[in-house]
Every structure is written in C-alpha cells, then in structure tokens.
C-alpha cells in the first residue's frame, strides 16, 4: 500500500489522541490567559495607583517576566519547585505562561486605563465609591473593551506558546505528534495489512495545521468580540491602524 495511505491510516487511528491534545492546548491557553488576566489586573492597579516603591517592584516584576525565556519559567515550576510541591506538567505550564502573560496583559491594560480620562475616576469617587471600587466598576469595564485588540494579540501569543509545555511532557499537539511517530509500527498496524513507515513531515504538517486552525478560529472570534464590544466613538489607535 502507498505511503500516503499508511500516513492517513495512522492519522485516522490516532485521531482521538490528536483531538485530546488539541483540547489540552486550548485548555492550557485558557488557563494561562485567565491566570495572566487575574494577576495582570492587580498589577495594572498597583502600577498606576500604588506607592512609589510598589510601582518599582511591579515594574521589576514585569521586566523580569518579559525577559526570562518562558521555558525557564516552566522548568522552574516543574523541576525547580518539584522538590517542594508537585504541580504536574499542566499546572506548571499554566502558571509559567500565565505569569509571563500577566506582565504583557498588564502592559495592555495599563495603556487602556491611561487612555481613560481622570474625570471618569473623579466621577466615580464623587458617587462615594472607594478607589478600588471605582477602578473595578468604572475603569475596568471601559479598559477591558479598549484593550480587546491588544488582548486578542496576547491570546494568540499564549496559544502559540503552549507547545513549550511539550518540554515537561504535557501531551499537547506537538507531543501527540511525536508520540504517534514513536509508536512501534507493529503495534500500530495490528489487525491490518498496512505496512510502510510514518512520514514525520506529514505528521508535523498536521500539527502545524491544527495550530493554524486554532489560531485562525480564536483570532476570528476575538476580532468579532472586539468589534461587538467597541464603545461607539471610542476607537483605540490599534484599531484604526
């Protein structure tokens, strides 16, 4: 039987594995983005309203996380802290990518917050809201919308970082690809008369295609959201370009 057929057969046979891996990649992206968002919002608040020292610490935090290779952060969580607490591959990767993303998300939110005039804060305070409440109720809803274009970009960056979790053995798409490749051929073809070798190029092309599909789908969805939640008359620079 032809080589193409055997490749198709293996892919078909491994469909559940690839689909599970795709789901893992999506979950990891969401988990990281969520962690990044939670911390990112806190940092944004501290960076804008904090004391001088707080601002400096937050600045250092952002600078360090933006500058450290994400692989190293993943390894610190997985291997470095492995002695003390066993986080497992998924959580280690989610925390590492999440922390890194928090620094980038903070930058995006800060840009958005700073483009909202101080009058908005004053109006909130004049209603008797506390500073933190004003931030949460008045500023954040506006800032979130304004930062959607930047957020879309960040989301896709995190998505494209998920294969890094391969390094700690998480079965995301790339790992699944390698696993399929490493399956003993005899086992793969039990019960069939298919012979031949797996073409690694075909397998990794499929991996690339899966990532590309995820990238396009999420870009499309987030762009759609950006358009939908655009505040009329409030256009950010990024959108006009």
């Amino acid at each position: 039987m032809s080589e193409i057929n055997s490749n198709l057969f293996f892919l078909f046979k491994n469909m559940p594995l690839l689909l599970n891996a795709t789901l893992t990649a999506i979950l990891l992206t969401f988990a990281s983005i969520f962690i990044g968002m939670a911390i990112g919002i806190i940092i944004t608040f501290l960076r804008i309203y904090g004391s001088k020292i707080t601002k400096k610490i937050v600045f250092a935090y952002e600078w360090v996380l933006k500058g450290t290779p994400p692989l190293i952060v993943i390894f610190i969580f997985y291997f470095g802290l492995g002695k003390y607490l066993n986080l497992g591959p998924f959580l280690s990767a989610a925390l590492a990518l999440g922390l890194r993303s928090s620094a980038y998300q903070a930058q995006i939110y800060r840009g958005a917050v700073l483009s909202i005039t101080s009058e908005q804060t004053e109006a909130g305070l004049s209603l008797g809201l506390s500073r933190a409440k004003t931030f949460m109720i008045i500023i954040i809803p506006q800032a979130l919308r304004l930062s959607l274009p930047g957020f879309t970009n960040e989301f896709t960056i995190v998505l494209k970082d998920t294969p890094l979790a391969y390094a700690v053995g998480l079965v995301e798409i790339l790992k699944a690809g390698r696993d399929i490749l490493n399956q003993p051929l005899t086992q793969s073809i039990t019960g069939s008369d298919i012979t031949g070798t797996l073409n690694p190029f075909a397998i990794f092309l499929v991996c690339a295609l899966l990532y590309f599909l995820l990238f396009e789908v999420f870009s499309y969805l987030l762009h759609f959201l950006s358009k939908k939640y655009e505040i009329p008359g409030f256009v950010t620079d990024k959108e006009t370009k």
């Binding site: 998505l159 494209k160 294969p163 990794f204 690339a208 990532y211 590309f212």
Partner: peptide, 10 residues
C-alpha cells in the same frame, strides 16, 4: 499563525 516550535520540529 503557527508556533515557532512546530516550525522547528517540521
């Protein structure tokens, strides 16, 4: 649209 690491593996 695709991760760096996938390109490297490919």
């Amino acid at each position: 649209g695709t991760p760096m690491m996938v390109q490297l593996f490919l």
